[in-house]
């Protein structure tokens, strides 16, 4: 970038750009534009916030009711009421991040393929994956995430009030929580990108939101519930190692809620390490699937 000596002049658009900074600027512009658009339909925006939050509240009520009858989910798993609410809040945060930044874009990506409008995206001098992942930010979905943060904070305070839980909090647990949330978002992003890419081959016009619903179904509960019987272990293995969505919710929630206390057992450490590996591998794998799919893309219509 050719900065002028006095430093006040805006960067020359014709000068060779630093790529990373430019990509960030493009993404920021996308986010800003979406926010402006959302804010011009304010009543609708508020309604959407309320509607997405009310599903979350219903989910919360279901477990409030369940915990009137039981004091933990699974025997000796440590997922008592407030541990589980940390888990629930974690899911809301991850869901809301994916739905805010990516879901609508992936849904529109399938449309781009069907209508042939992907041509225009391919022509632009920017990485196509970035271009199709970020154009529209659905800010109203962030309401759920805020609710999730509130639930996590509330439940953690409750756990801290119970001395027999021995909950250990430090800067590292909080940072770890954030890190593993980001890993989770990376995994979910990759799964959805790969699924959306398959519509280049399959020409499927089935709703991506359906897939989202079915996949998130498996990470909604602590993984311990699957660790029994043949079918259960098969599900656990599939959704841990093949499509690693179980680590997405379980690891960050474990970091904060510490259902089995501290220090962690060896398998908890291994799963946490695996979560990071899984995040990196899924990003790479989904990028590969995306590029392969683009290669088979033939434009549609005129």
């Amino acid at each position: 970038m050719s900065n002028s000596p006095n430093g006040t002049q805006p960067p020359n658009p014709l000068s060779p750009p630093t790529r990373g900074a430019n990509y960030l600027r493009v993404i920021a512009t996308f986010c800003r534009n979406s926010l402006i658009r959302d804010m011009s339909f304010r009543a609708d925006f508020i309604l959407q916030c309320i509607s997405s939050m009310s599903w979350a509240v219903m989910n919360f009520m279901l477990f409030k009711i369940i915990y009137r009858f039981t004091d933990s989910i699974g025997r000796d798993t440590g997922w008592g009421e407030y541990e589980f609410f940390v888990f629930l809040g974690t899911i809301w945060i991850i869901n809301s991040l994916i739905q805010t930044f990516f879901m609508q874009n992936f849904d529109e990506f399938s449309d781009l393929i069907r209508t042939g409008n992907l041509d225009f995206a391919l022509l632009k001098p920017i990485d196509t994956q970035i271009l199709i992942s970020f154009p529209r930010t659905n800010w109203s979905q962030l309401a759920n995430g805020a609710l999730g943060v509130a639930l996590v904070i509330y439940s953690v305070t409750k756990l801290l009030d119970e001395p027999e839980k021995h909950l250990q909090l430090s800067v590292f647990t909080v940072l770890g929580f954030i890190l593993f949330i980001l890993c989770g978002v990376a995994v979910m992003y990759s799964v959805m990108l790969a699924l959306a890419s398959t519509s280049i081959w399959l020409g499927r016009n089935q709703n991506l939101y359906d897939f989202w619903f079915y996949i998130t179904n498996f990470y909604r509960y602590p993984m311990e519930i699957y660790q029994r019987s043949g079918v259960g272990w098969a599900l656990w293995g599939t959704f841990t190692f093949v499509i690693p969505v179980l680590v997405v919710s379980n690891i960050p929630a474990r970091v904060l809620a510490q259902p089995l206390g501290t220090p962690w057992k060896w398998w908890e450490w291994s799963l946490a390490g695996f979560a990071i590996v899984a995040a990196v591998l899924s990003l790479l794998a989904s990028r590969w699937v995306f590029l392969m799919a683009l290669r088979s893309y033939r434009s549609a219509s005129s």
Binding site: T70, S72, G74, Q206, D210, N217, F218
Partner: peptide
């Protein structure tokens, strides 16, 4: 065709429900 597959998919949530309630009844 799409329909039949979709119907089977619709039972996936029931599958997770089975495991959830199994864990809960185990405790009770």
């Amino acid at each position: 065709g799409d329909f039949m597959l979709g119907t089977l998919m619709r039972f996936l949530p029931t599958l997770t429900q089975i495991f959830l309630w199994w864990a809960i009844y185990d405790v009770i």
